[in-house]
Every structure is written in structure tokens, then in C-alpha cells.
């Protein structure tokens, strides 16, 4: 069997240690070993974005990331943003804008939107479309997702003004 690799990293703000097979993906580690199932398997090839997480402040497809490569890094999943104000606003905006249908792609979209707002707090619709081009959604037709992210961006605008 594959070599096992001992790693230590920060997961959702908590220091964790894990031993992972060298070929394992971060997605498999998160879901199967650490039981964080908010990160979804959609394709396993980086084409759908359902498994989007944040690593060292940048969004990434966890299905393409080697679990061993998490060593020493700061990994955040949807579960780790339960207390995050901006994520809360995003989630609320997704809910009130009807951006959620079957919901399978939604955690990945929220993670990607969160990263987008980090880099660009007030994105326009075209910027949002490009920002989520790596997240496939089969239900909504994206329009309400785009509106939800835009409003979360606008809301942070209001907050900044205060």
C-alpha cells in the first residue's frame, strides 16, 4: 500500500494531526476521515467546484489537493465559517434570494463567494460570474446565486460606511 504521511495543519482554526495515504485527496480526508461532509464530491476532477475549500487564504478544489500537501497549512471548510460574519451574510443572502435549490453545490459556492469577497468586497455581476465560473449548478441557472453574492457585497458596503 501507499506510503502514509504524518501531517499537522490548522483545520477550521484548530490544530490537527493526521496520517494520510500519500495518494489521498484532501476531499477524501475531510469527508471520510474527519467526517466534515459539508465539502461535497461532485466530479473529483476540479470541474464542478462542489468541493471548494480555502487553503492559506485562497480557494481551491479539495478533490485536486493532495491531503499530504495540507501539512503546515491553514485549511478552512464550510463548517469552519459557521461563526464568520461575512459568511453568515452570504448564507443569509443565498437563502433570501432563492439561490438554493437542491443545495448540493451550495457549500462550494458559498466558499468560493467568500473568497471572492475577500479579494473584491463589492463585485459587479460580471465579476461574480467569472468568480464562480468553476462552480457548476444544475438547478438555479446561477442568476439568483449571482444576485445573492452581489447583495452580500453591497451589504458589506453599507457596513463599511457605518
Amino acid at each position: 500500500m501507499s506510503a502514509n504521511v504524518s501531517i499537522a495543519f490548522t483545520l477550521n482554526g484548530v490544530a490537527v494531526r493526521a496520517t494520510v495515504p500519500a495518494h489521498q485527496s484532501a476531499l477524501e480526508m475531510l469527508r471520510d476521515e474527519l467526517h466534515l461532509t459539508g465539502t461535497k464530491y461532485g466530479c473529483g476532477e476540479g470541474e464542478c467546484g462542489a468541493c471548494t475549500i480555502n487553503v492559506d487564504g485562497s480557494s481551491a478544489n479539495s478533490c485536486l489537493l493532495f491531503a499530504a500537501d495540507c501539512d503546515g497549512r491553514d485549511v478552512v471548510t464550510i463548517e469552519g465559517l459557521a461563526d464568520d460574519k461575512l459568511t453568515e451574510r452570504l448564507k443569509q443572502s443565498f437563502v433570501t434570494h432563492g439561490a438554493v435549490q437542491c443545495g448540493f453545490c451550495t457549500p462550494g459556492l458559498v466558499m468560493q463567494a467568500r473568497h471572492m469577497l475577500d479579494k473584491n468586497p463589492h463585485p459587479g455581476h460580471d465579476e461574480i460570474k467569472r468568480g464562480i465560473e468553476g462552480n457548476l449548478c444544475r438547478c438555479t441557472g446561477y442568476k439568483k446565486v449571482i444576485e445573492a453574492i452581489a447583495e452580500a457585497g453591497e451589504a458589506s458596503n453599507l457596513e463599511d460606511a457605518r
Partner: peptide
């Protein structure tokens, strides 16, 4: 190139 998630990596 691909998508933001991939461009980041």
C-alpha cells in the same frame, strides 16, 4: 485558464 479555484493552485 480553468477557474479561479484552479488558477489559485
Amino acid at each position: 485558464f480553468a477557474s479561479d479555484q484552479l488558477r489559485n493552485v
